[in-house]
Each structure stands twice: as C-alpha cells, then as structure tokens.
Design a protein around this nucleic acid. Structure first.
Lengths: 143, 143
DNA sequence: CTGGATGCAAAGGGTTTGCATAAAA
DNA sequence: TTTTATGCAAACCCTTTGCATCCAG
C-alpha cells in the first residue's frame, strides 16, 4: 500500500471512529509510515522534532495509543521499561532478539503458526495475536 | 524438588557466587517457593508483609534480580509497565494469556521448540531462551 | 573486623493526566 | 457552537540508587 493511500485510509478510519483528523495526527502518522522496522516513542519524538514539526510528547503518546487500537502499529516488547513498537503494515512475523547488540531479526514460520492454532483449539482458546521472541546471540555477537 | 532441598541448594549457590545468605534472602526465597504460578513484585511485598516478615521493597527488588540471574525465576512479560515473574522450577513452557480476565494458561510444544531451533540455525543465531505468548480470549471469556 | 547487604527516602525514567486553550466539525 | 484535541507541567508508578547503618562470614 502506498503512502498517499494509507494516509487517506487513516483519515477515514479516524473520522469513522468519531475522532478528529488533526495536523498532529497526520504528521505523526506520516513519520511512522516512513519508519522502517522498529521504533520507540522517544525515537519518534526526536524524528518529529528534527523535521521542525511541532507535536508535544503527550500527543505522540496519545496518538500511538490510538494507532495501536486501530491496528496500525504493534507493541513488540517492553524492554528496560520502554515500549518498542513496529509498523503493522507488513505481514505478521516473529523476532530473534540479540541480547548483546539489540539487533532484531524478523522471521516467519507458517509451521509454527499452525501448531499454535492446534494448541489453542485444544484449550478452547480464541487467539487474537501472538508474540514469539527468541533471545540469544546473533551471528556477529557470538565471536 | 522439595522445598527444604531447594532452600539448601539456594544457600549454597548464593555463597558460591560470593554473596551472603541473609535472613531477608531466605524469607523471600521461601515465599517465592510457596508461590504457584505467576506473580509480580507488589504481590511478593504484600505476601511478605502479611506474614509479618520485615523486608524492604528495595531488598525485594534486589533479590528478585539475583534470583533471575541465578535462574530461579523468569521474567514472563512486562504488562502495563509492571514486570511479571514466574518460578522457574518447572519445565519450560509458553503462555496463552486471556486479554479479558488475565488468566494465564501454560502449554508446551516440543514440535514448536524444534521448529524454533531450525529457524535459529538458518540465521546462525544462538538461542538462549524464548517466550511465546498467545493473546486472546479464554474459554470462559468467549461467552 | 570488613565487605557486602539492608532500609530509607529520594531520585529516575517512561508514561499518563488535569486543565486551560485551541481548533476540527 | 460544540466537542474533541493539544500543550504544558505536574502527577504517577514502577524501579533504581546513594548513603548511613547493619550484620554474615
């Protein structure tokens, strides 16, 4: 999905949800769209500030919460009391997280997903989303 | 492993690591041993207080950190900025977490573990531990 | 004795919130 | 005009830390 289209869709969704489409929300959304991979709120605030865009930290937090509820971003993990997010536009995937350098490698395994569904069925549990994080040492940090 | 034995082993481990075996550490360890399933620090503090045991919150935090490093407890998840732990005496397992009532169901799948190892090999990643959390609605909360 | 452990209270750091003001609709 | 959003700063909450005191080894 291209950015123009995504923005338009976001505008409509926001309005349909009874909220207002403000310049701040537009700006935050745009910055997130241009973000590759994972980010934390502080990153966002700095990125926004460096573009001479005026949005308060509080608004960034409030908007992130909205974006999470609308499904535009996912909370990946709470690490050292900081929340790490990711843009939710790509396909679902899981993470290998290097304990040493912090690198995050994404992977996807249809086989694992299938096994998860099997387990949920067994417990009559209705899955909505999941997180699989494998911590360890990446290729470079094993040296 | 019974509690007496676990405590003895803990005492030895603590000493071997060059730390002191204090009454506070003993008390905290005992309370954790008698804990079934998951807990958060505040639970621990209250449990300890209700037994008229004097241990400061700071010491509980410091001891939990030691227990984590020694492998006696695992950090399960950070939820609403609170850390949830579990006793690490049982076999490794993963979690189904009910988004509505907060219930945590444990499961284990050897098949999933094997697939994970396969993936790590592919990325030349050396896994140390992992977390698989499936969020959704438990049997009761689907009604 | 002596160095690590404890308790207290204060500081930290990310996140949330109350309130007056601003601006979408 | 009405209602929701913003900005600011203060409040929150979990967690960490500095320091004087204590105590296990």
């Amino acid at each position: 999905m291209n950015k123009r289209k995504a923005l338009k869709e976001f505008k409509e969704t926001i309005k349909k949800s009874g909220m207002k489409f403000t310049p701040q929300r537009e700006k935050i959304f745009k910055v997130i769209l241009s973000t590759k991979g994972h980010f934390e709120i502080e990153d966002l605030v700095h990125k926004i500030r460096s573009k001479n865009i005026d949005v308060s930290r509080a608004t960034v937090y409030r908007t992130l919460d909205i974006l999470k509820n609308l499904g535009y971003v996912n909370e990946v993990i709470k690490f050292k009391n900081k929340t790490i997010y990711e843009v939710a536009l790509k396909e679902h995937h899981d993470h290998l997280i290097c304990r040493k350098c912090g690198k995050i490698i994404e992977f996807h395994s249809e086989e694992i997903e299938k096994l998860q569904n099997k387990i949920c069925k067994k417990y009559k549990f209705k899955p909505e989303f999941h997180r699989l994080e494998i911590f360890g040492l990446c290729k470079d940090c094993q040296k």
